[in-house]
Design a protein around this nucleic acid. Structure first.
Length: 283
DNA sequence: GTCCAGGGATTCA
DNA sequence: TGAATCCATGGA
C-alpha cells in the first residue's frame, strides 16, 4: 500500500463524488472508497489537500487525471455568466468539480440511469459489478471492476434484468454487443467534434440526447455538452424563464449560448444548486 | 403528442 | 404502515 498527499486547494471532494456524475463511490467513516478502472482507491481530505491510499499506484497519473487535480477551476468559473443565480450556485458549493471518467463505464451507467434516482443507480451498478466484474486483488475491502462490454455481451438479457435494471436491460445488452462487435469505437470519439461524437453515441439503443450529453461531458470533457434533465429544466424555467413559457427549442438554444465555453461545468453547478438548496426549500 | 417500461427510495397521510 | 409519488428518459 502506498499513500500520497495531493496538495490541492478548492476541491469539494465529497460533493463531487456524491454529485450524480459517478456512481461507484462509497463513504466509509468519513473516507471515500472507489474503483477507477482496474484500481481500488481510498480518498480522504484534510487541510493539506486530498490524501490517497492505494495498492501499487505507480505514478498516480490515473488518479490525477480522474480527479482532474490539475484543472484550473478558477479559470473555468471565470467564464460563467455573471448573473445572480450562477454566482449563488458557485457560492453554494465552492470547489465542485467535474471528474474525468472512463467512457464505457460512463455510457453503461447512464443507460441505467433513466428514470432512476441516484441511490438506485448506485445499487444497480454495484450489482452489475459484483456479479459480472472481476475482483481486484490487494484491496482491503471486496472490490470489483466494472465489467467490460465483451463480458456483458456474452450474457443474456435475463442475466442483466436480474440486476434490477428492468426495461433498461435490453438497451445495455445491445449496446454492449455493438461495442464488442466493433460497430462503434468509443476511443475514436475523442478526436471527433461534439456533434459527430453525439450522433455516434445516439446510435446506441437507450441513448437519447440527454444521456449522450452526460457521457460527452463526464467521460470526454466536451465542455459545451449540456445535459438537460428534469432538475435542470426546473432550474432554467424558474431562474431564467420565470415570466414566459419557453419552447423546448428555445431552451436548447439558451443552454448552447448563454452559459459560455464551459457550459457543461456551469450545468453541474446549477444541478447541484437545485438539488441541495431549492430542492430542499420547495419541499 | 401520448403512453409505457422495473421497482426501490422517499414522502405523506 | 400503507399509499402515493418520484426518478440525471427513450422508444413505439
Amino acid at each position: 500500500m502506498e499513500e500520497r498527499l495531493f496538495p490541492v486547494r478548492n476541491y469539494a471532494l465529497a460533493e463531487t463524488l456524491r454529485s450524480g456524475q459517478a456512481f461507484r463511490w462509497r463513504e466509509v467513516a468519513g473516507r471515500w472508497e472507489g474503483v477507477i478502472s482496474e484500481r481500488w482507491v481510498r480518498l480522504s481530505q484534510n487541510a493539506g489537500g486530498i490524501l490517497a491510499y492505494a495498492p501499487s499506484p505507480g505514478d498516480w497519473v490515473w488518479l490525477v487525471d480522474y480527479l482532474q487535480i490539475e484543472a484550473d477551476l478558477d479559470g473555468v468559473l471565470s467564464t460563467f455568466p455573471k448573473d445572480e443565480h450562477m454566482q449563488r450556485a458557485i457560492h453554494e458549493c465552492p470547489g465542485l468539480r467535474l471528474l474525468k471518467q472512463e467512457p464505457w463505464e460512463t455510457l453503461a451507467s447512464f443507460i441505467l440511469s433513466s428514470t432512476k434516482q441516484i441511490v438506485q443507480i448506485q445499487q444497480i451498478v454495484q450489482l452489475v459489478c459484483e456479479r459480472f466484474g472481476s475482483t481486484i486483488p490487494g484491496s482491503p475491502s471486496k472490490a470489483y471492476t466494472f465489467p467490460t462490454a465483451h463480458r456483458l455481451a456474452e450474457l443474456t438479457e435475463h442475466d442483466l434484468r436480474c440486476c434490477k435494471m428492468g426495461f433498461r436491460a435490453p438497451y445495455l445488452h445491445k449496446t454492449a454487443r455493438m461495442i464488442d462487435e466493433g460497430a462503434v469505437d468509443l476511443e475514436a470519439l475523442r478526436c471527433q467534434s461534439l456533434e459527430e461524437a453525439r450522433a455516434e453515441l445516439m446510435r446506441f439503443p437507450g441513448v437519447g440526447r440527454k444521456i449522450a450529453d452526460c457521457v460527452l461531458l463526464f467521460a470526454y470533457h466536451f465542455e459545451k455538452a449540456f445535459p438537460v434533465d428534469v432538475w435542470i429544466l426546473k432550474a432554467l424555467r424558474m431562474l431564467y424563464f420565470s415570466k414566459r413559457k419557453p419552447t423546448p427549442q428555445r431552451l436548447l438554444n439558451f443552454t448552447q449560448t448563454y452559459f459560455g465555453p464551459n457550459a457543461g461545468y456551469a450545468q453541474q453547478y446549477l444541478f447541484h444548486y437545485m438539488r441541495t438548496r431549492i430542492g430542499r426549500e420547495k419541499r
